[in-house]
Design a protein around this nucleic acid. Structure first.
Lengths: 242, 242
DNA sequence: AATATATAGTGGTCTAGACAACTAGATAAC
DNA sequence: GTTATCTAGTTGTCTAGACCACTATATATT
């Protein structure tokens, strides 16, 4: 595994060797690797050199050190392509429920001053206004009102809107969403909302406003949602970007 | 800058010292820092110890090494130290309000099965249980109950807890938080909560549960908070990691 | 049986060197 | 002048130890 006369640094050879064993499954998650002293003796190198190799693998998330116990293969990294940036449909499927949609309204309306600012269009510009009841396993989960500039997605139809708009935009229009800002807030259901969500007036609801941005930075959409407080929890993972 | 008899490791002291100089602007982007040998001689420590400090700062993006030339302060470190991963105190200050704290309870309790699993400790292990009313500009904003393994932060006191625990942990204990998982949910205030938050029973509240992880992956803390729905909105920015 | 205490093994920190690889500038040779 | 060479200074790699802090287990002690 280690060739002392290779031009490659020893720590690097060891690092790659261990990484390979992890990727090939010869070292499994949770398994302890040989101790630093043992590795040093095995390959007749200094412990500090072993540490340099292990340090790199720890930084890359392959290994986890536990003082007094040993060094272990890290639990498999979770792949999260768009951490929390899921559409309603994806969100529900991830929760093991079948998403559904009932379109209440599908209109083209002029942008109000507030919406114009949020979507970066002129006041009065054409916007789709889409009001939908979102279902999970057939039961109402949320009430959604979204606004999208007609200029960005010219050929939206009521049919498309009864499915996943995001999927349409990514697959057929060829635009992709890069980022979003969400604001969450607790409230209670008003009469109209309560009826549509099939809960009692005054029941807890989660208000969610999301603004999505395209890859080029243009705002794509503003969505205001009212989620049933008894059925929906919003989970978000945050990580310090190194 | 370096105290050899401090319980804090030498490399850490040096690391913090350099980081501070960068953050205060005493070392400017592009500027070369003293060479490793020079630092070692100045503080009468080993060069390997200096390297450990510098390595960490390079990994964190504060410094850039250039072989044969020197080590330089990195160009504009992107400021997103903990996007959304802020403590209550930071959160309130960012909103232009002055944070405050009233400690209701500060006990050591045995870990329940559920908490033991969340915090990765044995059932029955000692945990701090900290119950606090969090104030913003003197008015109640949230009710917080947090659990921290005593094994990780052995010397927590009621005094510390009346300020920012995160700041204490980062600055004095020398641990830093890498990631967190938060779950948000809408609910209504129960009687006890309503009294402490000074709202009516049944008023909307935002329930927030956060689990924080340290750099080494160990869970540090589980916090369950009840925020006043009329005063608090939770904002989160999400970005597709390329 | 419950509780201290020792012990072996682990990673964490640190030393005082060494030589290699690289950069930049000064100096010498052409 | 141009080119090659030397030289001082830098980071990169590596050694062979040392002691500390922590964990788990085995062993006395009570």
């Amino acid at each position: 595994m280690i060739n002392k006369h290779s031009p490659l640094p020893i720590y690097y050879q060891l690092e790659q060797g261990i990484k390979e064993m992890i990727e090939k499954g010869q070292l499994k998650p949770g398994e302890m690797i040989p101790s630093e002293r043992e590795l040093a003796e095995t390959y007749d190198i200094s412990r500090m050199t072993v540490r340099q190799a292990i340090n790199n693998l720890v930084n890359d998330g392959y290994l986890v050190r536990k003082r007094g116990k040993g060094t272990f293969v890290a639990a498999t990294k979770i792949e999260q392509p768009l951490k929390g940036l899921t559409s309603f449909s994806e969100d529900m499927r991830a929760r093991g429920m079948e998403p559904g949609t009932k379109v209440l309204d599908f209109n083209i309306v002029p942008a109000s001053a507030a919406l114009a600012q949020l979507l970066d269009v002129r006041e009065g510009a054409d916007l789709y206004e889409i009001r939908r009841v979102r279902l999970a396993d057939g039961l109402p989960m949320a009430l959604e009102t979204s606004y999208i500039p007609c200029s960005i997605v010219p050929d939206l139809t009521r049919e498309i809107v009864s499915g996943s708009v995001y999927e349409f935009i990514e697959k057929d229009v060829g635009l992709s969403i890069r980022s979003a800002v969400q604001v969450l807030e607790a409230s209670v259901a008003r009469k109209m909302e309560a009826e549509l969500l099939q809960v009692k007036e005054g029941a807890p609801v989660l208000l969610l406003q999301r603004r999505s941005y395209l890859d080029d930075g243009r705002p794509l959409e503003v969505v205001k949602s009212v989620y049933r407080g008894d059925r929906y929890k919003f989970t978000i993972e945050m990580e310090r970007s190194k």
